[in-house]
Design a protein around this nucleic acid. Structure first.
Length: 399
DNA sequence: TCTGGGGTCCTAGGACCC
DNA sequence: TCTGGGGTCCTAGGACCC
């Protein structure tokens, strides 16, 4: 028999916007919208996060920034400062790790904590939840919502229901009542497509879904259907898993205006390759393959991927392969909206590739490039990311 | 009003092997 | 002249999450 678990889900409220209000006291109490430049309503891109004051105007994350601007032109529109958010994120997770090592970050501002073994030492989970919220507020100045439940799914739903600044405990045995009235979209893995499909056969709430048999759901949605059958009954056996290794590292960008300029596309790919490679080096990873992402003016997205001759953390290698992949995308006659590069099949550097230095041949060239890249990383760390750049990109920018 | 950027996981088809 | 079944790996696309 499996012992009952106690899982905490901690979710920072309007995280990026809360950080901006923390760092800019004059913005507290005002609608703050973090995202793309609205450019007087003509901006490209979307809202990354917004304060609760902004939500009162109907603004939501993922809303096109121009729409947000029209809804609330008096709002405070700011560009995201990811390094600052990452810094505070680390401090959030450090507070959670005071209770246990079983902390699984879900994103920059969200985590599961398995408190099953901690309650003996620290007291009831509800008390720990209260304490966590208090520490986040007192030490970091940031609000959070917390859910306490016997599993991940229920804990996540609970924290969502408590937002903002809430603490919701799902009583053991009360899972059914708790879930029944909720719309299907609350189920983990049910997005717009699946919800529409289920609505198409007359289902609206989790209670409706729970009336279907395992077999019926399986026939309609495959393995995911069986998973939903369990979730609808509050069953979720997935463990809290700390430190999972990254499977891919990517960077992509949408052009300010759709472009037909092949040289601009290549320069952009080089700069994306630079970003991806330096993040690989920072994490001690090498890529065994590359995926190129390409989106045209009609919003049609294609990807092309291929393995690399040897694992690498060099921009030159990623870029060279990206050019080969680009040639495999038929984009004649179409303008380009977005390009992206993702490093895949990651492994940690040093395993296998270590050994004697090679003095000649491609491996030696790679070693020289690695040292150069290491020096560039160092300069950027000390003087900022714009302190040094590739001549190919500088010429482009100024020419 | 067009629709970001960072990811994960699943599926389906084809190649290839035994 | 017809044509197994299982397994794995790779690629491309798509759904989903924050």
């Amino acid at each position: 028999l499996l012992a009952a678990r106690t899982i905490l889900h901690v979710d920072m409220d309007a995280f990026y916007a809360s950080v901006e209000q923390l760092d800019h006291p004059e913005w507290r109490g005002r609608p703050v919208i973090v995202g793309a430049d609205p450019a007087g309503g003509r901006g490209r891109g979307v809202v990354a996060a917004c304060s609760y004051e902004a939500r009162a105007f109907g603004i939501r994350s993922a809303l096109p920034i121009g729409q947000a601007w029209r809804l609330c032109p008096e709002g405070v529109f700011v560009r995201p400062r990811f390094p600052r958010y990452a810094e505070l994120s680390e401090r959030v997770f450090a507070i959670l790790r005071r209770y246990t090592d079983l902390v699984e970050p879900l994103s920059i501002d969200e985590a599961f904590v398995d408190l099953t073994g901690s309650v003996r030492l620290f007291g009831p989970a509800e008390e720990i939840g209260r304490e966590v919220k208090h520490s986040l507020r007192a030490e970091l100045g940031l609000p959070a919502s917390v859910g306490v439940a016997p599993n991940k799914f229920l804990a996540k739903i609970a924290s969502e229901l408590g937002k903002p600044d809430g603490l919701v405990v799902v009583p053991v045995g009360g899972e059914g009542e708790f879930l029944k009235p909720l719309p299907l979209g609350r189920l983990w893995g049910v997005g717009p497509k699946t919800e529409a499909k289920l609505r198409g056969i007359g289902l609206r709430t989790i209670e409706d879904l729970a009336r279907l048999s395992r077999e019926e759901l399986r026939a309609m949605l495959g393995d995911a259907g069986e998973h939903l059958w369990e979730l609808a009954r509050g069953i979720d056996r997935r463990p809290v898993e700390p430190d999972s290794a990254a499977k891919s590292v990517g960077a992509e960008t949408t052009f300010e205006a759709d472009t037909g300029d092949a040289e601009l596309v290549r320069c952009t790919l080089l700069s994306l390759a630079d970003r991806v490679a330096s993040r690989l080096r920072a994490q001690g990873l090498v890529a065994g393959g590359v995926t190129l992402k390409f989106r045209d003016e009609d919003f049609r997205t294609v990807t092309r991927s291929a393995g690399l001759p040897r694992p690498t953390d060099l921009a030159e290698d990623l870029y060279a392969k990206a050019l080969v992949l680009l040639a495999r995308v038929g984009w004649k006659g179409k303008l380009v909206r977005l390009v992206g590069i993702t490093a895949v099949r990651l492994s940690s550097r040093g395993q296998g590739t270590k050994g004697q230095l090679e003095l000649f041949g491609p491996a030696a060239d790679a070693e020289r490039l690695r040292r150069l890249a290491g020096t560039v990383d160092e300069i950027r760390k000390r003087f900022g990311s714009s302190a040094i750049s590739r001549a190919a990109l500088v010429v482009r920018k100024n020419g």
